[in-house]
């Protein structure tokens, strides 16, 4: 027998049966359940959905960052038994620092720099002018040779032939 004819026969046999339609009792039951669910859930406004997602994402991101920080602190705690004490050390008296080369000039420059607060162009100009005068004066008077460095200690400035190289 031809394959198509056989397939047609199968389809005809299948069509002898049918699937029952949903009964009215089933409709009542399901629509009642659906109506109950409708009342329970309020319709969300469309804009609320992305806003809520954004808030949830932001909260999750904050939580992850907090968790990472906590984890980092916890894991590093054993290597940091105490906080580093940062001490601010000031030069109490520049006269006592005998190792600073060109000490008279440096003292003068430092005191000038401390006394002036550079806030605008005119102050900056006057500051630069003062500095230039100090340096000129030092050059005219002849710079005293810096003291030889103490063995094993460094100097603040490397040995230079003079201030000319900076000007």
């Amino acid at each position: 027998m031809n394959e198509n004819t056989e397939n047609k026969q199968i389809e005809d046999i299948l069509r002898k049966a049918h699937l029952p339609e949903p009964s009215s009792e089933l409709k009542e039951r399901i629509t009642a359940e659906a109506a109950k669910a409708w009342k329970q859930t309020s319709l969300e406004l469309p804009w609320q959905i992305p806003v809520r997602r954004l808030l949830v994402s932001a909260a999750a991101a904050v939580f992850v960052i907090w968790l990472a920080n906590s984890s980092s602190d916890y894991s590093l705690a054993r290597w940091q038994p105490r906080r580093l004490q940062v001490e601010h050390q000031q030069f109490a008296n520049l006269d006592t620092l005998t190792e600073i080369p060109y000490s008279p000039i440096v003292r003068q420059m430092v005191s000038t720099g401390r006394s002036s607060s550079i806030t605008d162009a005119s102050v900056l100009r006057s500051y630069a002018e003062t500095m230039r005068n100090i340096l000129d004066e030092a050059q005219q008077n002849g710079v005293s040779k810096p003291p030889a460095p103490v063995e094993g200690r460094s100097r603040l400035f490397p040995t230079q032939p003079g201030f000319n190289s900076y000007s």
Binding site: P22, L26, R29, I30, T31, E33, A34, A37, W38, T41, L43, E44, P46, I49
Partner: peptide, 17 residues
């Protein structure tokens, strides 16, 4: 099938937006 159909309709209502 009837039980699942009921679940589907409840889900349709809940996901109506």
């Amino acid at each position: 099938a009837e039980d699942v159909l009921q679940t589907v309709f409840v889900r349709i209502v809940r996901k109506r937006h």
